[in-house]
Write a protein that binds this DNA or RNA. Structure first.
Lengths: 236, 236
DNA sequence: ATTATCTATAGATCTATAGATAATGC
DNA sequence: ATTATCTATAGATCTATAGATAATGC
């Protein structure tokens, strides 16, 4: 099992302002960050994978960006694929956590769906940890990354659940549960695609609100209820 | 300028049933198709790029799949990037053509939008020529492929135009024209992502109809009008 | 003569391993 | 002794060029 915090070792408390003595051979070009090295590697790898894809990013580029020589990566990760796996895991986990927390609120279906779309969209717009849509990565298949697709299915399940509940109580109306589940799920994810390009043109809060509004209106029996639902959903 | 039909040379009419004599050195492994070679190369390249990305597909793989030796590709295309460019161009062109044709119908905004979403979705679901979402390809940037992004902007413009017209006449209502334009455009495109995985679970006609329904409901002032609009939109 | 292919290969990567080395820790 | 790094490099690609060759066309 892969944990998202790579460095599991107990860290001694670090007196503030004091430069910690680093054991091991010093780096050739010493541009260190405070972050644990494995996390720094993941951060730069994530950015590079997002910008150039998995196959399009070389281990040398990752190492350079992290201030290491290329072979030093393999001290922290068995191979390039394991770097990718760790990056991918970090990406979905927060959404799963959100869904777990939400379950305890026991909101009515419409409010729950609004909150889910809004959170999902906002998270994708703002979180530095986001890799991108899985469809940007042909190497991210069900066979190679079952744990990722499993988590993703949990998210889909949440959408499907709220839609089904809402329909049962007559607040939602739609054609085909499966297709609508996929469409609403994709709606948030699709934001990623265009939002990245014009980060500064839009406020992420407004993008998230507008997306949730639009998603809800699309399935509500009485679309004008959307403003009430928005109010009931509370702040971010 | 790159034309989508690569082989522009005049072809002599070919008597049916007669095997045309092929000039040039015969292939090592002779698994020829009737298709012009350049088009065959594009067809297999498109499939491979979709499945494995640009950087993840080698020219050897393309050549193998087309029944040629690797260096023979460069008889038809200057380099790997030009193969990609041709594939990409073939992908958007049909949608542009559709939009041009639609302009002549002069439909009211709601019908026009319905037809656009429905066609876009159906096209993406069924057309073998589809490469995938541009966001699957980090190498497809505005700098490297301005002609592609130009065509894509024309599609966005069509969405924006219908939405603005509809709002002016009071049939549509929404928060923010720009965001909604992007969302509806992405809606059709997002279909691609999940539809590919379960091709057999869904009928593309139903996917296209359901997507157009949902998209329209999301912006209609009176969502129940959607069934009328669907009727007015005619058959596929 | 022209064309479509081939074989051979240069030169540039790219991933991962082996083993040395320069720190701290005890 | 342990750790984090380094250098050197093997071995496997991968793209594209050079130049030969096996067909048809005239």
């Amino acid at each position: 099992m892969l944990s998202s915090t790579v460095n599991g070792m107990a860290k001694k408390a670090q007196p503030i302002g004091q430069t910690k003595p680093r054991i091991g051979r010093p780096r050739a070009s010493a541009n260190e960050t405070d972050q644990p090295v494995a996390e720094e590697i993941l951060a730069v790898a994530r950015r590079l994978f997002r910008e150039k894809g998995f196959a399009g990013t070389s281990t040398r580029e990752i190492a350079d960006a992290a201030g290491l020589r290329q072979p030093s990566l393999f001290h922290y990760f068995k191979n390039k694929k394991e770097i990718f796996r760790a990056v991918v895991t970090d990406t979905v986990e927060p959404v799963i956590t959100f869904i777990r927390t939400e379950a305890e609120r026991d909101d009515p279906a419409d409010v729950a769906l609004y909150r889910l779309v809004r959170h999902d969209t906002y998270h994708l717009c703002t979180n530095e940890n986001v890799l991108g849509s899985p469809f940007q990565f042909p190497e991210l298949t069900e066979e190679s990354h079952p744990e990722f697709w499993g988590m993703r299915d949990q998210i889909t399940d949440a959408y499907r659940h709220h839609l089904r509940e809402g329909e049962k109580h007559g607040v939602f109306v739609f054609n085909n549960l499966e297709i609508v589940t996929q469409l609403l799920f994709s709606l948030g994810e699709s934001t990623l695609a265009w939002y990245q390009k014009d980060r500064d043109r839009f406020d992420p809060h407004q993008v998230a609100d507008t997306t949730a509004d639009l998603g809800l209106r699309a399935v509500l029996t009485h679309p004008r209820r959307v403003s009430t639902i928005r109010r009931q959903s509370g702040a971010f």
